[in-house]
Each structure stands twice: as structure tokens, then as C-alpha cells.
Design a protein around this nucleic acid. Structure first.
Lengths: 151, 151
DNA sequence: GTTAAATTATTGCAAACGCAACTATTGTCA
DNA sequence: TGACAATAGTTGCGTTTGCAATAATTTAAC
């Protein structure tokens, strides 16, 4: 018999929510949300990115990301520029302050991950990551439709 | 060097969002959200539950769940009763219509899981589930504090 | 047995989200 | 070239969310 509480989607959500809650608290003193942190961490990794690419990476709607990046820009953590050779896109980059803050947060992120996988072997962690990647690629990206709403 | 895009929290969120998006679309024709589905599936599993227990299982705030269950009750999918021997708690149960709908959704959920883990062996899936459970238990439950807010 | 503390659920409120509509720019093709 | 389609971002709007405050009931303490 199929049990919700032993299903992959359920366990995935449960672990994801829990880990986000914990990290959320740890970065709250910097007035950052998890999504904001991910934007910063992503830019640290790639130096620059368009809004659309960031939205894909962070797994939020582009409209949400637009506002979120606006907030980060207002706080001088990132810069937004429209390149001269392409007036459609917006390039987002870390400012020096954004870089500094992101570096400061890295240890927290590593610590969180270490806590989460405590008791698991290196091989188990590798297998977990690969399973998570596989599931992501097994499922089709939504074109943009699809009620995500509750109630 | 620590990479966001190879970190467990990131991969976890990415897979979780994707799987929720897909399932959300599949159940949208029944006017159900994923959280609503989880409430129904949970009640199918346990017959009855209090709001607080449901909130734990579904990983949402109890205030959110209160309203969500209110909506389900309005649609006659669940019943809410305050027991005579305890006027504090609310017992939630599936109505016959709720049961019928839930049974109808089960194949969809099983199909989704099958799609998600396609290409993985039984052992890999088992290991995945156990890793997800371990991570959940490795992280402390938040007492109720902690900014989850964005922007 | 009465008062204080703890538990459980609901409601007010503001923030955040996603969808849809819109603007602006670039690409296509005839 | 000139019109039409496609891409990229922003903004309006209604819904959903979580936190905080509140109400109601039960448990604990004295």
C-alpha cells in the first residue's frame, strides 16, 4: 500500500522545508532570505548572470526574482546593468559589498550542509546528490503554466 | 571550493520545487494544491488527526493549515469536530467524498514517484529515502521563530 | 479548589508569491 | 526594409503565507 509518509516527494519536501527553515534563521540577522542567499551565492560562482538564468537556478518565478534583485540592488549588494549591445537583458553582478557579505555567509552554508548530512559517508552524500540531480532531470520543466496555488 | 550548485540544500530545493510543480499541475483539475493533497493523503493513512499533527506532517504553519482545512471542509472533503472530552483540539477526518477523491489521486502520486526515480535501482531509492529521513532528523525543529520571509 | 501556566486552534495583518498583462528590445522572413 | 514573432523584464493584482496576537480549553501548582 502506498504511504504518503514514505514517498519520495513527501520526504523530499519535508527535508527541504526543514533545512530551509534552519538556514533561514541563521542568515536572518543579515536580513536575507534563502532565495536572496542563493542569488548571491550563484553570482559568486558565475560572476554575472541574467535575471532569467538566475530564476532558473534559484527555482523561483522571474517576476519574483525581478523584485528580489531590485531589493538587493537597493541595498547595494548587486548591480543591474543593461548591456549596450543588448537592451533587452539585465546583467546582475555582485558589488564589493555583496561579495564581502557572500563570503561571510559561506561558512554558514558549509556548516549547515555538514549538519544535515551528519552520519552519512562520503559515498552516501555523493549518491544523494546524484539522486537529486537525476530526479530533477527526470521531470519536465514547466513552461510557465500550472497552478501552484493553495486554497 | 564550495559550490552552491553542488550543495545538498540547493539540489534538494531544486528537486523539491520541480516535483511539486509537476504534481501541482496534475492535480490542478481537482482544484487541489499539493499541501491539500498531502492533508488528504495523510488522513487516508491515519484515519484522523489533529491540526497540529497535520501541520507537522505537511510541513506548513498551523495557521496556514487551519485555513487550508477550512477550505477542504467547505468543500465537504474533510470534517472537523471538537471532541467532547477535549474542547481544545480539532479532529480532522476524511468524508466519504474526500476518501473517494483521495483514492482517485493515489495512482497519480505513484506515477509521479515512478517518473521521478526513473533509472534508479530499488536500492538507490531506498538509500535516497533513508538519506532524506536522516537529514530531517539531523536538523532541529524550529520552535516557531525564524524569519522565512523574502525581500 | 483556585489561580497560573501550557496547549490548541483561529484571525488580523503585512509580506511574498505567481500569473497575466504590458513594455521594450531583438530576431525573423518575405 | 518593414511587419510580425519571439525574447526579456517589469508591474498590477489577487492569493497564500507566516508571524503575532487572541480566544478557548486543559493541565499544573500551590
Amino acid at each position: 500500500m502506498y504511504k504518503l509518509t514514505d514517498s519520495v516527494p513527501y520526504l523530499l519536501n519535508r527535508a527541504g522545508v526543514r533545512i530551509a527553515e534552519v538556514f533561514s534563521q541563521r542568515i536572518a540577522e543579515n536580513d536575507l532570505s534563502v532565495a536572496m542567499y542563493r542569488v548571491l551565492a550563484m553570482l559568486r560562482e558565475r560572476k554575472e548572470s541574467t535575471l532569467g538564468d538566475l530564476a532558473d537556478v534559484v527555482s523561483v518565478e522571474i517576476s519574483t526574482l525581478s523584485r528580489l534583485v531590485g531589493t538587493l540592488a537597493k541595498r547595494k549588494l548587486v548591480s543591474r546593468t543593461r548591456p549596450e549591445d543588448n537592451g533587452r537583458i539585465v546583467i546582475v553582478r555582485l558589488t564589493p559589498q555583496g561579495e564581502a557579505l557572500t563570503e561571510k555567509l559561506m561558512p554558514l552554508a558549509m556548516e549547515l550542509e555538514a549538519t544535515a548530512v551528519q552520519g552519512m559517508s562520503k559515498e552516501e552524500v555523493t549518491a544523494l546528490k546524484s539522486a537529486l540531480k537525476r530526479m530533477h532531470s527526470n521531470l519536465p520543466a514547466m513552461s510557465g503554466k500550472g497552478k501552484t496555488s493553495d486554497q
